[in-house]
Write a protein that binds this DNA or RNA. Structure first.
Lengths: 98, 98
DNA sequence: CTACTAGTTCGATGGCTATCGAATCAAGAG
DNA sequence: CTCTTGATTCGATAGCCATCGAACTAGTAG
């Protein structure tokens, strides 16, 4: 197991996570999920942030791909929630600053 | 003092910080500054990361503008170091994960 | 079956940004 | 003064990305 290769891989993950959080709407989604600590659907987020549902779907995918959120599907509705393990690993203490 | 306006301002700062960190070369600069906990010059960084000095200067400026680093000038040489207060405020615990 | 609801995907577009070399500047060295 | 060194700025370029509407899928209600 090469330590330097792990370093590179971890860095790629860090960069991906920072990119995901470097967008106002995604950051607002994270805050709502954290503060109201509940799940949200695409429709709810779209209504609250005043952006189209296709854009919301795009942001949901971006957050999920880097492991910051996970999705629970009930019928045709998908509920988004925070993946706390990822925050603990890469950004410990960050959520509490929101 | 309007709480919501503070929220918006803090979010803009957060997004700016995440953008600054969402770039592989800048992240490497941060790690070197942290792990070897010393100051570095543009020339040193350019030699170590194999990028042109104009690009290094560009990254230094990006990091400084969002308050992640500060600069100490000695003659015509500028030394970069971490602004730990900013990390503590917006990303407590992050540096220790590097 | 039809209509509605929740999401995804696609194509296009406008804007941002990382990168470089060249030009410039300031400060010492000789 | 001239040359070198460390750094900034500028202009250009290429690539990425947030946004939207439209088209599509799938599940549910009437």
């Amino acid at each position: 197991m090469d330590i330097e290769l792990n370093q590179v891989a971890a860095d790629q993950q860090r960069v991906a996570i920072f990119k995901a959080l470097a967008e106002p709407n995604r950051l607002r989604i994270i805050r709502v999920l954290y503060h109201e600590h509940r799940e949200m659907t695409c429709s709810e987020v779209g209504a609250q942030l005043q952006i189209s549902k296709s854009t919301v779907s795009y942001h949901f995918k971006a957050l999920r791909l880097v492991g910051l959120t996970n999705t629970r599907q009930v019928a045709q509705t998908k509920y988004l929630s925070l993946q706390l393990a990822t925050f603990d690993r890469y950004l410990p203490g960050f959520l509490a600053t929101l």
